[in-house]
């Protein structure tokens, strides 16, 4: 693992989806088994580029997610390396039985990509806003579940997932997003990334919350509180050692996720903490609520997904030591 931290809270000029598309183009050129399957959402993630370059290996399955995942499992059985995409809500809820049985249970390592995680579904509204997609996929034995943040991380993880040979689910923020990492950064599935060292509290975040965690660290530092910041982009398998070490070092933990906390990253981390080194914990994320329509900025406030919420949670966790 070798990465460069940019973390200036500035938007990338490129859309995150292009991190995926670029990785796919590279893999498809080198490896004739690599395929992309879409569900009438090529225009949303720019995979029309793949269709142009590799028409036989870029398949549009139409608006039929369950079938698309089943077809992907069948393709996989013929030795193909298959990535299949829809919005996160449909890539999880709509095709879950097929993902579970035809793919994972049958040991066919299909790679499922769900775009617009959580509040990123914004104007598509509550029907399209998955706060439970990772929960579903984490429940599948031996599945890999990742929630990357930016262009560079998506680019790297797409390739790593293909190499892993494991059934996987990747959330993908598809539009332009704040750059956290420099291009060429390298990540290892199952290993969290320590972005800042600290001793009073460990903030463990992923996806859109990583940049918020970095902002929270700056605000806390200004108040004399030293926070460790970890990007836990792999939700499963979880980097248990890093969690245990951080709990011991800092004595308090805050988790932050764009997902329901009661069945997401926070609860998965709590599981590790409680069995190994109980310390006060606070969880920032969505509390047992459905999504709703609106601008992403509004939704972040509405569901408490901001740096300010992390700062508050950090102080609370520390006060409970």
């Amino acid at each position: 693992m070798s990465f460069t931290l940019i973390g200036k809270h500035e938007k990338d000029s490129r859309a995150n989806r292009d991190g995926y598309v670029t990785a796919m183009l590279e893999m498809m050129e080198k490896d004739l088994t690599v395929m992309h399957v879409d569900c009438d959402l090529e225009n949303c993630i720019n995979t029309g580029k793949l269709a142009k370059a590799y028409p036989e290996r870029t398949i549009n399955a139409g608006i039929a997610e369950a079938n698309a995942v089943g077809v992907s499992a069948g393709l996989c059985a013929t030795g193909k390396t298959v990535f299949v995409h829809s919005f996160g809500c449909f890539a999880s809820r709509r095709a879950f039985d097929q993902a579970f049985m035809s793919a994972a249970y049958a040991k066919l390592p299909v790679h499922i990509v769900g775009s617009d995680p959580g509040v990123c579904a914004a104007y598509n509204g509550g029907t399209h806003m998955p706060f439970e997609d990772c929960a579903l996929y984490m429940s599948i034995p031996d599945a890999v579940v990742v929630d990357p943040v930016d262009y560079a991380q998506i680019n790297c993880l797409t390739k790593k997932l293909a190499e892993s040979g494991k059934f996987s689910y990747m959330r993908m923020i598809r539009k332009t997003f704040t750059t956290v990492y420099g291009d060429g950064s390298d990540f290892e599935i199952g290993k969290g990334v320590t972005l800042k060292e600290g001793k009073d509290v460990a903030i463990i975040a992923s996806g859109i919350m990583v940049d918020e965690a970095l902002k929270a660290e700056e605000q806390l530092a200004a108040e004399g509180i030293s926070a460790k910041v970890i990007d836990m982009f792999t939700w499963k398998p979880l980097d248990e050692q890093l969690i245990i070490d951080s709990a011991k070092e800092c004595g308090a933990i805050v988790t932050a996720e764009n997902h329901q906390v009661k069945c997401g990253l926070g609860s998965a981390i709590a599981n590790v903490v409680i069995q190994n080194c109980p310390v006060p914990m606070e969880m920032v994320g969505v509390e047992d609520r459905f999504g709703q329509v609106g601008a992403e900025s509004f939704l972040r406030e509405e569901y408490g997904l901001t740096a300010a919420h992390i700062v508050e949670a950090a102080k609370k966790a520390i006060s409970r030591k």
């Binding site: 449909f90 809820r93 598509n124 509204g125 509550g126 399209h128 329509v293 609106g294 509405e302």
Partner: peptide, 28 residues
């Protein structure tokens, strides 16, 4: 439409808009 806490979201919602009979958005 689509403003904070609106009763008129992108996709029809029986819990929000008078006259909408069933909630849709996930096609099919």
């Amino acid at each position: 439409l689509n403003q904070p806490h609106t009763n008129f979201p992108s996709h029809t919602d029986r819990t929000k808009t008078p006259g909408v009979d069933l909630t849709t958005g996930s096609l099919g």
